[in-house]
Design a protein around this nucleic acid. Structure first.
Length: 469
RNA sequence: GGUCCCAUCGUCUAGUGGUUAGGACGCUGGCCUCUCACGCCGGAAACCGGGGUUCAAGUCCCCGUGGGACUACCA
């Protein structure tokens, strides 16, 4: 609203599980909006549900944010540590007559709810305790006195103006029987006190917003700008959940995704800049705006994410890619300590790997001299009729001085010509001999990376195999 | 049930009254080729329905229909 006030946003997850895809996108939109406006991004952990909140979840969320590169400027703050503040605000509202104690029991309320539903009436609080002037008592709750006339308008940055008749809103509980504040009250107090200027969150919160605006007014706080971003759906168009596949951000890390790929994918779910598909982080910060975020929910498409990941693997900074693949190799018991060798391996593999897992799986043969030959491949190509070609290679290879991709390609092509055969009849047996598989990077690349010595040894071993089968 | 939101290829989307409705993923035909990829060239594929407004509607309005969210002493 105020033009030159510093933008302050927050991401406020509840630590009841891992950071999921939907939460990550909300965090991302907050982060991009904030960085674009040179504001401050605040992380607040909403842990007032003591039963379900865990420290592990908090840590997992922090780790996932960090992995994605969504750094925060303040926090993490913990909502549970602020209950004294919340209680003071509750008292203030009670003192001002804007809130009141209520002794209706959950059972009574449930009963009334059911009856209202059965009689086709709205199941809203009937105001039993509204004007009884009750005092605090064990298990009493505090309710906010909602105006029952008038209209509350939410001027949403992505959805536009949304208006609600206040009569639809009932007297919500702001402090529970255990003296803890409820969500709708705590967010308002915290957002206001933390100076949040823009509340960007999932659109599952739109119906909470008018109540919150009323609370802002009652507390005398300035109302922030709201932006409700659409949800992410699964392939069956229901809310994204485990049955649609992995929903935890860190699960994607483990599956060999690069954070940039996930960020690029997530941002394009609901946001677009013309026809552009690939965005660097800097571009996103420059180009992102909430006004350009679509209003409708989007289906999560794993195939497109995979494509993006492949793209990022191909284009990634080479040294960074090497660093990223290392843990996956170590997991497989591979000694990846030879930096030059590993770098070449990655180079061979990066145009043919959709994930780091795929790359690590494809890298095995480079590190293993005693190969298990692929059964079908061996049957087809490790046969006496090809032994001559292998022998030819072993004999002539020592004299090849230009041991490079080009040199080897030339070497093999010349050999094919001289032997009056097709290159594939030399390349395929060679491939099995060197990689154990029928599918691998280009044979010339493999030979360069492996080095002449290993190549010689592996071919000799393959020839022995042919001799003994 | 009530309140609120949403609606362009299967999916993500561009489009802001006049377009052969564009791009991307996926699918598919071809080229390249030592295998698999990469890359390149081509193809099929969409404006939910009905009424308006207008010379003209994917675009604006209304009504349907379909989806979703919320409707807790969870967040």
């Amino acid at each position: 609203m105020t033009e030159n006030k510093e933008v302050r946003t927050r991401f406020a997850p509840s630590p009841t599980g891992f950071l999921h895809i939907g939460g990550a996108r909300t965090a991302l939109f907050n982060w991009l909006f904030t960085r674009h406006n040179c504001g401050k991004f605040i992380l607040r952990i909403e842990d007032t549900d003591q039963m379900r909140s865990t420290d592990e979840s908090t840590q997992a969320i922090l780790d996932a944010m960090t992995w994605l590169g969504l750094n925060w400027d303040e926090g993490p703050f913990f909502q549970a540590k602020r209950v004294d503040i919340h209680r003071a605000m509750v008292e203030k509202l009670v003192a001002e007559g804007k809130a009141y104690y209520c002794t209706c029991t959950p059972d009574e309320l449930e009963e009334k709810r059911k009856r209202a539903l059965a009689e086709n009436r709205k199941p809203k609080y009937d105001g039993t305790c509204r004007d009884r002037g009750l005092l605090r008592s064990p298990n009493s709750v505090v309710r906010f006195r909602c105006p029952d006339t008038g209209v509350t308008v939410v001027d949403d940055l992505v959805k536009g103006k949304i208006s609600f008749n206040n009569e639809e809103l009932d007297d919500l509980i702001i402090e529970r029987g255990d003296d803890y504040p409820t969500y709708n009250f705590a967010v308002v107090v915290d957002d206001a006190l933390m100076g949040i200027t823009h509340v960007i969150r999932g659109d599952d919160h739109v119906n909470n917003t008018p109540r919150q605006i009323l609370l802002y007014n009652a507390l005398g706080y300035e109302i922030p700008v709201f932006g409700h971003v659409p949800m992410i759906l699964g392939s069956d168009k229901t809310r994204l959940s485990k049955r649609h596949g992995a929903t935890s951000v860190m699960a994607y890390k483990d599956m060999g995704y690069l954070p940039e790929a996930l960020v690029n994918y997530l941002v394009r779910l609901g946001w677009a800049y013309g026809d552009q598909e690939i965005f660097s982080t800097d571009e996103l910060i420059n180009l992102f705006s909430l006004e350009a975020v679509g209003k409708s929910a989007a289906v999560f498409n794993p195939d497109k994410l995979l494509w993006l990941n492949q793209h990022y693997i191909k284009e990634y900074d080479h040294a960074k890619l090497v660093d990223n693949i290392r843990p996956f190799l170590i997991d497989r018991g591979i000694d990846a300590s030879d930096a030059v060798f590993l770098s070449n391996v990655v180079n061979d593999l990066k145009s043919r790997s959709k994930t780091l897992v795929e790359m690590a799986d494809g890298a095995g043969f480079y590190f293993e001299d005693e190969l298990d030959y692929d059964k079908d491949g061996a049957e087809k190509f490790l046969k006496p009729e090809f032994a001559g070609h292998l022998k030819n290679v072993v004999e002539k290879l020592p004299d090849l001085t230009n041991y490079t991709k080009q040199g080897i390609e030339e070497f093999l092509k010349t050999m094919a010509e001289e032997s009056n055969t097709k290159l594939k009849f030399i390349a395929q047996p060679l491939r099995i001999a060197l990689t154990g598989k029928t599918v691998s990077p280009g044979i010339d690349e493999v030979m360069v990376t492996l080095g002449k010595e290993k190549v010689m040894k592996r071919i000799e071993r393959a020839m022995q195999y042919i001799g003994s089968h």
